[in-house]
Simulated scan of single mutants.
Amino acid sequence: MEKLIMGVDGGNSKTDYFLFTDKGTFVDYYRGPTCSHEQFKDGYEGAYRAMKDGVSKLLDKHGLKPANIAAAAFGLAGVDTPNQKANIEKIVSELGFSRFQVVNDSFLGIKAITEKGYGVCSINGTGTSCGAIDRHGNCLQVGGIGWIVGDDAGGGYIARLAVRSAYLSAYRMGKPTSLTEIVMNQLGITDKYYLMEAISEAALKRRIDYTGLTLAVFAEAEKGDAVARDILQSVGVSCAQAVAGAIMNMDFDEPVEVVLAGSVWVKGASPIMIKAFSDEIARHVNKQFRILTLQVPPATGAVIWALELAGGVFPDYEKRRQIIETVSAHLEAEA
């Protein structure tokens, strides 16, 4: 008799719930709102309500309960520390699941596209973090809570550096950069005398176009602007240091599979940033590694992980391919 598994990918705005059999056959799918405790005023109580609602909407119409699910994997935003992980595990257990894995969503890319089911994933999207799973199944997250732990990457960070670089160029002996004119145009000023005031007001009223400025940094770097190139190189180095730190603190065989995920890595695809990333890893790590770019939905990693939990072995290529194609098709239809 076929068993049922569930894979859940929860971000800060939405959560995707997938139901499959342990043979890799699709059963159902539901997209709900975020279930991250960080997005609710009542924290974990809000997360419990949202997750219970999402699970119920997926299972109830099939006459199923969480107890009927052989294994489930939850990759969720906001699971950054052991305490957060323990609190979410408590919620999942209270919902009725017995065999499950709860991790930060940064780990899902590893299960989604690596050949061995373990490796390191560098997230470089709106924000940044790094998740690693070694060959013994141990998990480690490096960063993910902001500047205070060295998270010097992500689109928001790149955009802030663009604004900072414009001001440094204007008044603090920074290098001349084409980003200055771009920043001033976005802020609606023509005289640098008003630059600090414009930055202050835009930041206070949250009117800075972070996406536009991030794209501008990529464009100006390609044109040869030294400051824009320095920004992308620094981001590549920062992400690489997190990856190298994960590799050095865990047990990997060679080659270590390193996954790039998030819009800055995937859509930006900057050779400048990727070269800085690769060179910095090689500078610190005495192991062969290969870089993979995540071109499939992270939710596929949650389903594959649940399948691994149910069967005790990492699924073969054909089964993983089947899951990737099915999950991708449903999420493309949703979009």
Rank of each mutant, 00 (worst) to 15 (best):
T214Y: 00
T214I: 03
L215W: 00
L215I: 01
L215P: 01
A216N: 04
A216C: 10
A216Q: 03
A216Y: 02
A216G: 07
V217S: 06
V217E: 04
V217L: 11
V217Q: 07
F218S: 08
F218W: 09
A219D: 06
A219H: 03
A219T: 01
A219C: 14
A219Y: 01
E220P: 09
E220W: 05
A221P: 12
A221K: 04
E222T: 11
E222D: 12
E222C: 13
E222S: 13
E222Y: 09
K223G: 15
K223D: 06
K223R: 13
G224C: 12
G224A: 11
G224I: 09
G224T: 11
D225I: 06
D225H: 04
D225Q: 06
D225A: 06
A226P: 07
A226S: 15
V227F: 04
V227C: 08
V227P: 06
V227I: 07
A228T: 03
A228V: 05
A228C: 08
A228M: 05
A228D: 03
R229V: 07
D230G: 09
D230E: 12
D230S: 13
I231T: 02
I231K: 00
I231N: 00
L232D: 02
L232H: 05
Q233G: 07
Q233D: 08
S234H: 06
S234C: 15
S234L: 10
V235L: 02
V235R: 00
G236L: 01
G236S: 08
G236W: 00
G236T: 01
G236P: 02
G236K: 00
G236E: 01
S238Q: 04
S238R: 01
C239L: 06
A240F: 09
A240L: 09
Q241C: 08
Q241I: 07
Q241K: 12
Q241L: 07
A242P: 10
A242R: 09
A242G: 08
V243N: 13
V243Q: 10
V243Y: 09
V243F: 08
A244D: 06
G245K: 02
G245N: 03
G245Y: 05
A246M: 08
I247Q: 13
I247F: 10
M248A: 13
M248V: 11
M248E: 11
N249V: 14
N249C: 14
N249W: 13
M250H: 11
M250T: 07
M250A: 12
M250P: 06
M250S: 11
